[in-house]
Design a protein around this nucleic acid. Sequence first.
DNA 1: GATACTTGACAATGGTATTGTCAGGTTTCT
DNA 2: AGAAACCTGACAATACCATTGTCAAGTATC
Lengths: 127, 127
Amino acid sequence: MSEPVRVSIGRGDSRDPKRPVYVISVAASIVSVHPRTLRIYEDAGLVCPARTPTNIRLYSEIDIRRVMWIRHLTQNLGVNLAGVRILFELEERLGTRILERLYDEGVDAADAAKSADEAPEPSASTA
Amino acid sequence: MSEPVRVSIGRGDSRDPKRPVYVISVAASIVSVHPRTLRIYEDAGLVCPARTPTNIRLYSEIDIRRVMWIRHLTQNLGVNLAGVRILFELEERLGTRILERLYDEGVDAADAAKSADEAPEPSASTA
DNA sequence: GATACTTGACAATGGTATTGTCAGGTTTCT
DNA sequence: AGAAACCTGACAATACCATTGTCAAGTATC
């Protein structure tokens, strides 16, 4: 996470945000949760990390971002996992970044002003 | 209270779904919840029944429908009130009946198949 | 072989949802 | 006037959810 390094295999393949790279312990430390929590999210169908041929979970940048959204929705906005599921489904169904629009129009800060102090944008840097 | 009576003030005003008509005990029995629960929903900003000049709550048909959505989301889909709030806000922001679209495309039945057996359409009859 | 992963189970903590009640006061209806 | 239903605010019990944490037995990686 120091700098791009420009490894490049020719096309933007090595740093593809969809590429599964983090094992669960690393992913957990990135988003600051217990590995147990990540497994729970997976059981709930909220994240689907890839697996190595030998069944080890590998989280991509996109998976990480998804988990960050879950954290934001649950910790800052007080939504439970069932609510997160609906929101994700809605986003898929509508094919829109509805969650991001919540930020753009400032929904959280305005109404659910509870402990919302920081993290106004849970996307993993590489945006 | 036995029949329509055709009160009519000329235009469709008497049966306007926005017209506040039910006191809390009646509203509560219609949606099968404790009056306490309706006050909680109001405190949470999820419903805003009108008030008489002397401060008595009066729920409209629309308020009733709104409460029915809350009940469906919480009881059948397991969403908490924070989640309901977000969904309502989203619906306002997007200016779309996103909740209804969930039904149209069968989200609940498909994924959150838990205790979802009945009430596949919580709109108050008068649809 | 040591370290980290896998699943499955069990548990403790703190929080939420709902119902329920009680008290003191106001409104409504008969 | 008096009964019944409303108001607010408080307090509480129940049951369920989210998160963290651990333990055990087994597999993968270095």
